[in-house]
Amino acid sequence: MVSVGAAVKEPGSTRKNKTGSWRTFKPILDKEKCIECENCIMFCPEGCINKDYDIDYDYCKGCGICEEECPVKAIKMERE
């Protein structure tokens, strides 16, 4: 059954769709090197890096923006 007017009443429910499976390269964040500039958090198109700098691999699509924008090379892309 489709809801009336196909309205979706579960906010944020795309979380059911684990886009991590799209990834071919995986970002590895080295917290030792990290200077907490928050660039990666800001620029991640998935919003999947939290304020403790943990990457949620369920959703990370492996775009590589975080690696590219890290000023201290604390993030490395590795082949899955």
């Binding site: 906010p11 944020g12 795309t14 699509k61 492996g62």
Partner: peptide, 22 residues
């Protein structure tokens, strides 16, 4: 700190539009 635009969306990897919305 909260995200109001959830992951799992279908944008291309590296999409700039979703960064703007977030």
């Amino acid at each position: 700190d909260k995200e109001f635009f959830a992951p799992g969306h279908r944008a291309c990897a590296g999409c700039g539009a979703t960064i703007g919305v977030r």
